[in-house]
Computed example of a mutant assay.
Amino acid sequence: MKRINGNSVGIDSGEKVLFSDFENGGEMWTGSGPRERRNRIEFSARYKEIPTVQASLALWDVDNATVMRADIRCENISEDGFDLVFRTWGDTRIARVRAAWMSIGPLSQ
Rank of each mutant, 00 (worst) to 15 (best):
K2R: 14
K2N: 12
R3P: 03
R3S: 14
I4Y: 05
I4T: 04
I4D: 00
N5Q: 10
G6L: 11
N7W: 09
N7V: 08
S8F: 12
S8K: 14
V9H: 02
V9G: 00
G10L: 07
I11V: 15
I11N: 06
S13I: 05
G14K: 02
G14Y: 01
E15M: 09
K16W: 09
K16L: 09
K16G: 03
L18T: 04
F19R: 01
D21F: 03
D21A: 04
F22T: 01
F22R: 00
E23N: 08
N24P: 02
G25K: 05
G25M: 07
E27K: 07
E27D: 14
M28R: 01
M28K: 02
W29R: 01
W29L: 02
T30Y: 06
T30E: 11
T30S: 14
S32P: 01
S32L: 07
G33R: 04
G33N: 06
P34Q: 13
P34Y: 13
P34M: 10
R38V: 12
R38H: 08
R38M: 08
E42L: 14
F43T: 02
F43Y: 15
S44A: 14
S44I: 11
R46E: 15
Y47W: 08
Y47E: 03
Y47M: 11
K48Y: 14
E49M: 10
T52N: 11
V53N: 00
Q54T: 15
S56Y: 10
L57M: 12
L59W: 10
L59H: 10
V62Y: 13
V62C: 11
V62E: 13
D63Q: 12
D63A: 11
D63W: 08
N64V: 11
N64A: 12
V67P: 03
M68W: 14
M68D: 13
R69D: 13
R69V: 09
D71F: 08
C74M: 09
C74W: 07
E75K: 15
N76D: 07
I77Q: 01
S78W: 07
S78Y: 07
E79A: 13
E79S: 12
E79W: 07
D80F: 12
D80P: 00
G81E: 04
G81F: 03
D83H: 05
F86V: 15
T88H: 07
T88P: 04
W89P: 00
G90V: 02
G90L: 06
D91I: 01
R93Q: 15
I94T: 05
I94W: 02
A95Y: 01
A95L: 04
V97P: 01
R98E: 13
A99W: 02
A100R: 11
W101R: 04
W101S: 00
W101I: 02
M102P: 00
M102S: 09
S103F: 02
S103L: 04
G105M: 05
P106K: 10
P106W: 06
